[in-house]
Design a protein around this nucleic acid. Structure first.
Length: 294
DNA sequence: TAAACGTGGAC
DNA sequence: TGTCCAAGTTT
């Protein structure tokens, strides 16, 4: 396995074809990159683009966001999903403003200490915003590594081995390594896709173990698939959040529970359960005799 | 450690 | 139409 050739070809492909995304621009600030990573967690590029642009324009620095109420972050988050991320991003902005002099830290350990930043995001920010050499492994890269290195149709459960695998291919030069991290993600996102991979467009197809084995249907066991969304507590929580984002004044609990019940679910306790969970998450707060965003 | 956490696009 | 899946993190 010629790891040097793989890195060279993949980076050249990236230089040739990479999507022109604003957080990849030369003048993108570490804060702008950090915001993009929060938004991109479990969320596709196309849906993130308009929210990211508005966000960076409105809050060009962590301190600008930190000066707002958390609910403003939740509102600006709009329908990106998982609104707890908006709360966490606001919290991270406060931490950066107060503890790091309004500068996003470059150190992985310090990034990991920020709210809402885990192993992926910490390394992504260190690599993409500061050019540090780290293996950055997301779901796209895990699939690419699974096929290229292990000859399996899909990745298994996330594991520390993912970082070891990536390190095997990662160029020594930090700048090239940063590009390679982005290129592996890009390949997984646009060519080596989960459903219908476009191997004819793949710059590293000649080294791909899965292809060499004739595309066996050998995907390792994965975590059980997501529960049905229709009728779920998630859906009900989403309804409540949509109502409160729209409201410019506190909403009565009765109205909130009524909106939560609109789907007409079987479980009579579901509206209250969803409401209580939002209170527990801090996404909804009681205010006077009503409720609103925090 | 596994479950919980939104929303929308693709097929 | 229903299922899969998407730049993960937290408790």
């Amino acid at each position: 396995m010629d790891t040097t050739a793989i890195a060279r070809e993949l980076n050249a492909w990236y230089a040739r074809t990479a999507r022109d995304l604003p957080w990849r621009a030369e003048d993108a600030t570490p804060w702008a990159i950090l915001v993009s990573e929060f938004m991109l967690q479990q969320t596709q590029v196309e849906r993130v683009l308009p929210r990211w642009t508005a966000w960076i324009e409105r809050w060009p620095a962590p301190s600008a966001l930190a000066a707002e109420e958390p609910g403003e972050a939740v509102r600006a988050w709009d329908r990106l999903g998982y609104p707890r991320r908006a709360l966490w991003l606001h919290r991270a902005a406060v931490e950066i403003a107060q503890q790091h002099g309004d500068r996003v830290p470059a150190d992985v350990e310090q990034l990991l200490a920020l709210t809402g930043i885990g192993p992926y995001t910490a390394r992504a920010v260190a690599a993409f915003a500061f050019g540090e050499r780290h293996p950055v492994v997301d779901t796209n890269t895990r699939r690419v590594l699974a096929r290229l290195l292990h000859g399996t149709a899909a990745a298994g459960m996330p594991s520390p081995r993912d970082l070891v695998d990536m390190e095997l291919l990662l160029p020594d030069d930090p700048a090239e390594a940063a590009v390679f991290n982005a290129a592996a993600m890009e390949l997984g996102a646009v060519v080596c896709t989960a459903r219908a991979p476009r191997c004819d467009a793949c710059p590293v197809a000649q080294w791909c173990e899965w292809r060499g084995a004739g595309y066996p249907d050998n995907a390792p066991a994965k975590r059980p698939r997501q529960a049905k969304f229709e009728g779920s507590d998630r859906q009900v929580r989403g309804r409540i959040m949509a109502l409160l984002r729209r409201a410019d004044a506190p909403v009565s609990v009765e109205d909130v529970l009524a909106a939560a019940a609109e789907g007409g679910g079987r479980d009579p306790e579901q509206p209250r359960r969803a409401y209580d969970s939002l209170i527990a998450d801090g996404l909804v707060v009681e205010f006077g005799d009503g409720v609103r965003l925090p």
